[in-house]
Design a protein around this nucleic acid. Structure first.
Lengths: 201, 201
DNA sequence: GTTAGCATGTAAGGAGTTACATGATTTT
DNA sequence: AAAATCATGTAACTCCTTACATGCTAAC
């Protein structure tokens, strides 16, 4: 449920990083503007570690050779997923439940689509579309009710919201179409399970 | 700062309502889908009352005549703004600070534009535009960087986000243009200041 | 007579932010 | 030598949700 945990696991699934670095990756994931604070990031890392989903990467002897200058730097704690962490993340990825198509989480799920099964991808896209369609209908009928439209501004807001929802639905439909096409194509996508983290994008 | 308080005051500024009714109005304000829970609504009403910004409306003798059937109903607590409440809300409306153009609050401010001064309206719209432009630039450069573009999906997300931001900027520009036009037009809008709470909507 | 909607509330908790505190490293 | 950026953390707090609890009224 917590967005941050999911996001952290997702970033670590790509490569091990330390907290400070992690924050930048996270803000990049979320469009570059919205960031998580350290006040939530570091406690989250601790929590994940306590749960055994991530571990601190011990600097190996090889590091001293490849990056000797870094040896003197302040100990940067690089975290990586444990096997359990990978399993847990895979479960989170596979969960195409209703929260997967809520605003915050949908964007994240999409960002991790490269690591997500094709069928799950499709279900999330469809769920999101349905959600948007409902929202769109609500706005449409609100605009249709000539009463209770207070002023120009509320009207404009609804109009713009409606158009934005419309556009997103169309965008989703394109994505869904290309998913279906890919499913029918010769590319035999390997199923991604716990012991198989192929990164052929 | 709390979205809910601002929203409640804004709804009550239009007409007195009771909690249950309030919740519906609030969800209508926010596009019909997102609602506030009673678990936050009722405590907020209590808090506002404790601060002297709202009061419980006592049922008058006139009510018994106009709506006698309601007399037997469970006591619905109708709240209304006090003079202090109106003043406070007017201050909130007049504050065109940075939080006024953050997502959540901007929509609300727009919904209350009918009760907002023309110059404040303009500044909020411009602030929002600037914010959107920054966000847009961030996405644009993220898309331009051929490295660190992980896969098709992150790309698509950024593309769609960029287009949405673009559209919103254009929409804002239309609103700003029509504000400027209205400012130059013959309609002499009355200034709404602290000591002047005209309620002619 | 039982489901659905109206109406009000409380207690506990979740997910994050702000503000603070510290210190190393790099750049100017 | 100062300022910016890197790097890690804690304590207190904010705003809101979930889950629970109660009871009335209308419709089926």
């Amino acid at each position: 449920m917590p967005v941050l945990e999911f996001a952290v696991l997702g970033v670590l699934a790509e490569s091990p990083v330390h907290g400070y670095q992690l924050r930048k990756r996270l803000s990049a994931l979320r469009g570059g503007l919205r960031t998580f604070s350290y006040g939530s990031l570091y406690p989250t890392l601790r929590r994940l570690q306590a749960r055994g989903l991530i571990t601190e990467q011990q600097p190996t002897a090889a590091d001293a050779v490849t990056a000797p200058a870094l040896a003197t730097k302040r100990a940067r704690i690089v975290y990586q997923l444990t096997t359990e962490g990978k399993e847990h993340f895979a479960e989170l990825l596979a969960d195409a439940g209703p929260n997967a198509w809520e605003d915050e989480l949908f964007d994240l799920h999409l960002a991790f689509f490269g690591q997500t099964d094709a069928d799950v991808r499709l279900r999330i896209l469809q769920g999101r579309r349905r959600r948007l369609e409902e929202q769109r209908e609500g706005m449409r009928s609100a605009l249709a009710r000539t009463r209770d439209r207070l002023d120009r501004y509320t009207d404009e807001l609804a109009r713009h919201g409606l158009e934005a929802a419309d556009r997103e639905v169309r965008w989703l439909e394109e994505l869904i179409a290309s998913e279906r096409q890919a499913a029918a194509s010769p590319n035999p996508r390997r199923r991604q399970s716990t012991d198989n983290h192929s990164a052929n994008l």
